[in-house]
Design a protein around this nucleic acid. Structure first.
Lengths: 157, 157
DNA sequence: GTAATTTCGGACAAGAGAGTCGGAAATCTT
DNA sequence: AAGATTTCCGACTCTCTTGTCCGAAATTAC
């Protein structure tokens, strides 16, 4: 798996929150039930995002989480880095320590090219892009939740 | 981590074996000690490769493993598929079931492009390519083992 | 044929990621 | 002030990967 489940949940939630940013704080309970993610588990994932300054949180009734910045200013790169770290953007394919220009590994040049591209895309794509794309295509965000519409009938895992 | 440790060990070993293909069967003990991989663990990884028909194995003194085909005909794709499976070549970035052209996820188009490129590279690059590159650059394959040379001084993890 | 070598195979332990549970802290509503 | 809501936080379980250990099976060497 490229991204950890935590990371995927975080990205999905961020897109969801960005889609509901007019609503003020969005409760984790709402996110978890719409996106079909374990509530308590999602709690911790979103805590990471708030600790990294990507989201703000607020306790008490009508509390929840909200984006700390404009959705056009939160990149996919930040989201991934906040949860999974930057290793997928920097690490050697063969996991060799010190692999780099000075001491390349046999797969170095092939992987480096892709990695640079991946990094560029991740830094370019924002939550706004993801949300707009989702909205435009009426695309699903989870098994049950479609971005712009109502729950999917008969969606299967 | 993109590839599992098992997969990385398998690829490293395959490169090593390809480099020593004139030697006949290469013992797992030799591979594990030169590549600094746990012997018993490597045993199982290489069993997978033999079960997948990528390597042949032979028991008894002077036994070991050897490539089942020419090194120019074993692709990186096969090695990865044999150990980690093909999910990284097919899976949705956000892990959404059924993500595809018909039902794209918000990150679909960005990831698909990279995935296709990754697949193409993995299918194009062979053990011979990896070995040649390693040999040409006198590149290291592990902390201790340099493909064409002697152990590295002061290599650090 | 006996001993040594080497892969094969199952059982087990350690660690990380994923998921569950319960309670504390903060905040709003009444 | 009391109660409800909601995030925060620590402890625990489950599962999968990684790694260890031991013995069985195959093959060679003597």
């Amino acid at each position: 798996m490229i991204l950890s489940k935590s990371c995927i949940y975080g990205i999905q939630s961020a897109i969801y929150v960005a889609a509901h940013d007019s609503q003020g704080y969005v409760s984790i309970n709402q996110i978890s039930s719409e996106l079909q993610i374990s509530f308590h588990f999602l709690t911790k994932v979103l805590q990471q995002l708030t600790q990294e300054g990507i989201m703000n949180s607020y306790r008490g009734p009508r509390g929840g989480v909200a984006l700390a910045r404009q959705k056009s200013e939160v990149t996919l790169f930040e989201l991934i880095a906040a949860i999974d770290g930057t290793s997928i953007f920097t690490e050697c394919l063969l996991g060799l320590p010190g692999c780099g220009v000075a001491e390349p590994c046999p797969a170095h040049e092939h992987w480096t090219k892709l990695r640079i591209e991946l990094t560029a895309i991740a830094k370019r794509v924002t939550l706004k892009d993801l949300g707009d794309k989702a909205s435009e295509l009426n695309v699903r965000l989870s098994k049950e939740f479609r971005y712009a519409g109502s729950p999917v009938e008969g969606a299967k895992g």
